[in-house]
């Protein structure tokens, strides 16, 4: 009886897992097949005739290649470094120093940031970047993304910092450690998985972002992949399915690789679960 129950439980578990896996995977199957299909349309089917020529054509488009392998990486990587570093510092400060109203501050900023990253504030951001002389520069894009993503990054990061036992630093303090020393030698190593989560999250957000680069950049040589994908449209302005999907696949691989790497190396998880 107990065995039967165990088997049933296991079977239910595997069935549920299989269903969930399918739910998440099926919408992407087409994207996986179409780039290898010489005559792809919107229908899912095994590539026939199978071809790699679509990728060849994509790689022949120097503008799109540069967008993906240079500009997107500069922009997403730059914002990732800035956000991760600044958010960790700020989260540490919010967690460990007697700043008044810091919870209110965290919430308030996330709230503000949600409207500012929306379309309503694109114009003031454009004007701001213009007055800084950074229109059509990758730096301008990096700065705007950094500002927009920081509040939520600090929010996520605080969770990790709050979960470090204070006793570590308290004993270091007794031993005469400096504030920077405690941050660098005690906090940083412990919150590294958190920094990785924030880093991936930031990278992913910038990587996929269309609006900010579209508003701030002009030269084809600065455009990221999210904008460059429109160069695989026909003369009439419709997507060429074989090429857009091939480019899409290439465009997805870096974020996927980054996630898999971080997950393997540090574990991609929130620490204690973000606490309010």
């Amino acid at each position: 009886m107990r065995l039967l129950r165990l088997v049933l439980t296991r079977a239910t578990f595997y069935a549920a897992a299989a269903i969930f896996a399918a739910l998440f995977a099926i919408p992407l199957v087409w994207l996986l097949f179409a780039p290898f299909d010489a005559r792809a349309n919107l229908a899912v089917r095994l590539p026939h005739p199978f071809t790699l020529a679509n990728f060849g054509k994509v790689f022949a488009n120097a503008f799109a290649v540069r967008a993906l392998f240079q500009n997107s990486i500069i922009q997403a990587g730059g914002a990732m470094l800035l956000v991760t570093l600044l958010a960790t510092l700020a989260a540490y400060a919010l967690s460990r120093s007697p700043i008044r109203g810091k919870d209110l501050l965290s919430y308030g900023l996330v709230l503000f940031s949600s409207i500012v990253t929306g379309t309503a504030a694109m114009v003031p951001l454009f004007l701001l970047i213009y007055s800084l002389g950074l229109i059509d520069t990758q730096l301008g894009v990096i700065l705007v993304f950094t500002g927009g993503l920081l509040p939520a990054a600090i929010f996520i990061m605080r969770d990790f910092v709050d979960s470090i036992p204070r006793s570590y630093e308290e004993s270091a303090l007794v031993a005469g450690a400096s504030a920077w020393g405690m941050f660098k030698d005690i906090a940083l190593p412990i919150v590294r998985p958190g920094m990785m989560v924030v880093a991936v999250w930031t990278f992913v957000n910038v990587w996929g972002g269309f609006f900010v680069p579209f508003i701030l950049l002009r030269s084809p040589s600065n455009m990221p992949a999210s904008v460059a994908i429109y160069s695989f449209y026909t003369e009439g302005g419709t997507p060429i399915i074989t090429l857009t999907t091939a480019y899409s696949l290439l465009y997805t691989l870096p974020v996927l690789a980054l996630y898999l790497f971080v997950n393997w190396r540090y574990g991609f998880r929130f620490f204690g679960g973000i606490k309010s």
Binding site: L89, A90, Y92, S97, P124, L127, L143, L150, A179
Partner: peptide, 29 residues
């Protein structure tokens, strides 16, 4: 653990970004 002044110092770089790219645009809006 962190005195207020050091805390504010740690917070400052993020604060600059937030003021420039969130608070200012917010007031514009």
């Amino acid at each position: 653990i962190l005195p207020l002044r050091t805390g504010l110092l740690f917070l400052a770089p993020a604060a600059i970004f937030v003021v420039a790219f969130i608070v200012l645009p917010f007031f514009w809006v």
